[in-house]
């Protein structure tokens, strides 16, 4: 475990040099947030009106959380990086190091996004407060549990993204699969809460990774109950195991058939 913490730390050290990049990046996220916030303000002519069980404040905080969770992960770059590593054969140079490649990629990516995540959370809170003039009603334990759920959500997303990148072992270019994955998450998990979808689709979404990766932590922030937390937490642990197993399966299969051109 110590080595993975060191990998995480080394990535943080590297990323401290890119604070300006991160802030610039947030401008894009902020524009997107701004559009959504205005859209919801327009839809909610009366802020106390409930639409599918959400008032305007809850809806806006929901979008802020899902946006921060999704954009701070930088899943596109990660999937592209892993896919390139596989295609170029660079992945081979990790094989003779005494660490697990999936653990290495996970801790390295978590390290590389942690500065960005922290900045996005702070900026997200500021944006939310400026728009709504209040914070969600949470005590310190609730906040810690929401943060824990957020970190688990990000970890699951990273693991699924790694497994998509690793699919390049089998299908040469995994970018179409990543495209499909990102659009599904964006439409079904970021923009609207599950309650906005038809009743027939809702149970499917409740058992899908979207519940663990996006809906769960956002729902906890706006409506924290310990029952909600335990349901979301269990779902996250299950999906964490599934995503990790998927990564290992693709990785082990791929490495056996690895072709690296010599020099």
């Amino acid at each position: 475990m110590k080595k993975y913490i060191f990998i995480f730390k080394s990535e943080i050290m590297t990323n401290f040099q890119y604070i300006l990049n991160i802030l610039t990046h947030f401008i894009g996220t902020f524009i997107l947030l701004f559009i959504f916030l205005n859209l919801w303000q327009y839809i909610y002519s009366d802020p106390n009106k409930l639409i599918n069980g959400y008032n305007m404040n809850q809806m806006i905080w929901y979008v802020i959380v899902t946006e921060v969770l999704w954009t701070s992960v930088g899943a596109r770059q990660l999937s592209r990086k892993i896919s390139l590593d596989v295609k170029s054969g660079n992945i081979a140079y990790n094989l003779n190091k005494p660490y697990n490649y999936i653990g290495y990629s996970l801790s390295s990516h978590l390290g590389s996004i942690s500065v960005r995540l922290l900045i996005y959370i702070i900026l997200g809170i500021i944006v939310g407060y400026l728009f709504l003039g209040s914070f969600p009603n949470l005590n310190i334990i609730n906040i810690i549990l929401v943060l824990l759920s957020g970190i688990l959500a990000i970890t699951i997303n990273i693991l699924f993204t790694i497994s998509i990148g690793l699919l390049s072992f089998i299908i040469e270019d995994s970018s179409p699969i990543y495209w499909l994955y990102s659009k599904l998450i964006l439409v079904l998990g970021v923009i609207f809460p599950i309650e906005y979808f038809p009743k027939v689709v809702q149970p499917i979404l409740n058992y899908s990774p979207i519940y663990a990766m996006s809906y769960g932590p956002a729902k906890l922030l706006i409506d924290f109950t310990y029952i909600n937390f335990s349901k979301i937490f269990i779902s996250q642990i299950i999906y964490l195991i599934i995503a990790y197993s998927l990564c290992m399966l693709v990785y082990k299969k791929g490495v056996k058939n690895l072709n690296v051109n010599g020099g």
Partner: peptide, 13 residues
């Protein structure tokens, strides 16, 4: 050469 080195170091099967 490199293929042999990679097999010796466990990179290639």
């Amino acid at each position: 050469k490199s293929t042999t080195i990679k097999m010796l170091t466990g990179i290639l099967y």
